[in-house]
Simulated assay, not measured.
Amino acid sequence: MKKVILLVVVFATVLTAFTGIKKEKTTVNDAVAIENSVAVNNVNLEASVLTWKGSKPTGSHNGTVALQSGDLVVENGTLTQGVFVVDMNTITNTDMAGSDGAAKIEGHLKAADFFDVAQYPTSKFVITSVVEEEGKLLVTGNLTIKAITKSITIPASLSTEDGISTFKSDVFTIDRTDFNVKYGSKSFFDGLKDKFINDLVEMSFEVVTKA
């Protein structure tokens, strides 16, 4: 009897732990007006990347997207400006890399009912302000996906060594439907049962400057 009670307690504890895991959506606001932006084209595109992770009831997939161009302005060790242009045609799925499944996922993400890269070949993040708080940078910027721009704030860090600066954001979570990416969303379609795709998508930036 004691063993049964112990198992019930353990199961309840595990269940509580898992149900307590909750992705928090990054708050989105109206785009912030930008007076000017310095174009320095100093980002090492081969070393820089946007990572993503999407999920559904039966599992999750993750991958990367390359940058098409980028500017990262660091003055006296302080991040002041930045523009990251993302090449949506380079969306890749890494957890199934090299398989037909990966090719299918990549094709779907690029298709008209998802990111529609034929019409919207690039996305963009433009830094509008940076505040340091308790050793972490709170970076606010305009995120543009499918020609829809929202202001978001993401935690990040900046390091500089031998003249090379590396910007790394924490993982942040956006609601894809805020950017008109509605495929398989329970928020817009009924009767999907367990075939839906979660609205929340995890992302993170790593941007490295040239030597």
Results as ranks from 00 to 15, higher is better:
residue 1 M to D: 14
residue 1 M to G: 15
residue 1 M to H: 12
residue 4 V to K: 07
residue 4 V to T: 10
residue 6 L to H: 05
residue 12 A to C: 12
residue 13 T to Y: 11
residue 13 T to W: 12
residue 14 V to M: 11
residue 15 L to C: 09
residue 15 L to M: 10
residue 18 F to P: 09
residue 19 T to N: 11
residue 20 G to R: 07
residue 21 I to W: 07
residue 23 K to D: 03
residue 23 K to I: 13
residue 26 T to G: 00
residue 31 A to R: 00
residue 32 V to N: 06
residue 34 I to P: 00
residue 37 S to P: 03
residue 38 V to R: 03
residue 39 A to Y: 08
residue 41 N to L: 05
residue 44 N to E: 11
residue 44 N to Y: 07
residue 44 N to M: 11
residue 51 T to Q: 07
residue 52 W to M: 03
residue 53 K to M: 11
residue 56 K to T: 05
residue 60 S to W: 09
residue 63 G to I: 04
residue 64 T to D: 14
residue 68 Q to P: 15
residue 69 S to M: 05
residue 71 D to G: 09
residue 72 L to I: 00
residue 76 N to C: 03
residue 83 V to D: 00
residue 85 V to A: 10
residue 86 V to I: 15
residue 89 N to E: 12
residue 90 T to L: 09
residue 90 T to G: 10
residue 92 T to W: 00
residue 94 T to H: 00
residue 96 M to A: 13
residue 97 A to T: 09
residue 100 D to A: 09
residue 104 K to L: 08
residue 105 I to M: 13
residue 105 I to R: 12
residue 107 G to W: 06
residue 109 L to S: 12
residue 109 L to H: 14
residue 112 A to K: 15
residue 116 D to V: 00
residue 117 V to R: 11
residue 118 A to W: 11
residue 120 Y to A: 10
residue 128 T to L: 04
residue 128 T to E: 11
residue 129 S to A: 15
residue 130 V to L: 07
residue 136 K to L: 14
residue 139 V to W: 00
residue 155 P to A: 10
residue 158 L to D: 07
residue 158 L to M: 08
residue 162 D to C: 01
residue 163 G to W: 11
residue 166 T to L: 13
residue 167 F to A: 08
residue 168 K to N: 14
residue 169 S to T: 04
residue 171 V to F: 05
residue 174 I to A: 04
residue 175 D to V: 05
residue 180 N to P: 08
residue 187 S to W: 13
residue 189 F to H: 09
residue 192 L to G: 10
residue 193 K to C: 03
residue 193 K to P: 01
residue 194 D to G: 04
residue 195 K to H: 07
residue 199 D to N: 11
residue 201 V to T: 05
residue 202 E to D: 12
residue 205 F to W: 04
residue 208 V to A: 02
residue 211 A to P: 14
